[in-house]
Design a binder for these strands. Structure first.
Lengths: 247, 247
DNA sequence: TGGATGCCTTGACCCAGATCAACCCTCCCA
DNA sequence: TGGGAGGGTTGATCTGGGTCAAGGCATCCA
């Protein structure tokens, strides 16, 4: 769930036909060749499960296009989303045999998979890859910790604003013409938003309505969001105004 | 905040006088020698800050003895603890110049520090170290995600029980004589527990009283906890009964 | 063309946990 | 030897967000 670094995202990876930063960034010819040999693509339709918690997991992968979610479920059905995988994000854990979370495609999804065993071997012999993965994992850890603050201490309104701000940031390219605003499609249903934010879907709906009523956002249909003034939205998140001090 | 692996924790690391698994586990003679050259110890008294969010951070480190916390604070003072560092846990991020969280010693604390720049150089030349760090970071990420479920979906009582269970697990060696129980000292004040669990200190106190009233725990003084029946406590956590399926 | 299904909204009510406040205990040191 | 600071408990009350329930609006097929 690390935030996209545009420089890395735009690296075209040698002969790899699709842009993604997961493992290829900075990779050199022979490493790349070895990666090519063990990689394959899989696609999923919106709504399909990628893997269930506890299943054997024979690969690690990175998202090429589309969006997937990681969720945990308690026996009584309470659900908490613990990660949102956007293009270039990585799933799977070298050294672990089974999946720890349910992974689901929320939109149509293409993933670039690497068979786990050869990937691990490759990692042992090429320090670049372990270092790159370490970097990405540390980004994810930071994102998870930011999310802990949200879950533990923010109000419902701040949670919604924070989620919108994150999606807006990842879609920063889609600026509304010549204004300080942004527009984007929500990739999540109200229920999925609730699962991510530790709320109920009714509360999500009410807070969206409230932000709309007060002009912080404009809704076109249920899913398309226009943020006329990004700073106004950021004020609602409860975060430090300076946007964080990562790196 | 990864959970202690007793096997690794007990590795005595070559000439390193103090047991900790942070970087030394499995290390070989020359790597070790290089690590030795850049390491030094620092100690802190209970309550002292180790570093503030935003400060320059010239080292990475692992906890040798004692307990430290990672916390985030919002401008209006709301606080959320995002990590609990127990002996053998690692702090700091190669490749980042400033600290992202407040780090505080909650008990007397000894840390084994490595100067950052030479540590990064060493990491670049010795794949073991990056891989070891990756493994540890993935453990922390899992722990963070488990905590997200707690913060987002568990009740106050389940949160308290979960925290007690985690501390009990890390102190599994201190089993109460010949019973299925465990005893340990709480390393946190009620307020720190609250900051960790996303609650207020009053709620923490009330739930502790309630667990005590119902015999799930016995309190000797404010801080010493006896868990007469660990399974009974685990039932209160809301978690899957099978204790998770890590690895 | 009409109902069924999925997704979303809104209202009425309730309750877990926050807030506000009083008080207790223990340790410290003036 | 007393008072004050730090930590903890408990009670009374309030409220944000959960729960329950009704209905709206697309889209999809029969």
């Amino acid at each position: 769930m690390s935030h996209l670094d545009p420089k890395l995202a735009d690296l075209k990876c040698g002969s790899c036909p699709i842009r993604h930063r997961a493992v290829c960034a900075r990779c050199e010819a022979d490493e790349l060749q070895q990666l090519e040999a063990i990689k394959y693509y899989r696609s999923f339709e919106a709504g399909q499960p990628v893997i269930w918690s506890g299943d054997r997991m024979e690969f690690v992968a990175s998202v090429v296009t589309g969006i997937a979610t990681l969720t945990q479920t308690m026996e009584d059905g309470r659900r908490q989303m613990v990660g949102l995988l956007l293009p270039s994000d990585f799933v799977g854990r070298p050294g672990r045999a089974t999946a720890a979370y349910d992974v689901t495609a929320t939109t149509d999804l293409v993933m670039c998979c690497f068979r786990k065993k050869p990937f691990e071997d490759l990692m042992a012999s090429t320090p670049h890859i372990a270092q790159r993965l370490l970097e990405m994992t540390l980004d994810e850890l930071d994102a998870a910790r930011e999310w802990m603050l949200l879950l533990g201490r923010k109000t419902a309104r701040e949670k919604i604003a924070s989620l919108l701000a994150i999606i807006a940031r990842r879609n920063a390219s889609l600026r509304a013409a010549n204004t300080g605003g942004v527009r984007f499609d929500l990739p999540l249903t109200r229920e999925e938003m609730a699962d991510y934010l530790g709320l109920t879907l009714e509360t999500v709906s009410r807070q969206m309505s409230s932000l709309k009523r007060e002009g912080v956002i404009v809704l076109e249909g249920k899913r398309h969001v226009i943020v006329p003034d990004l700073d106004r939205l950021l004020e609602e998140t409860g975060d430090d105004s300076d946007g964080g001090m990562l790196n």
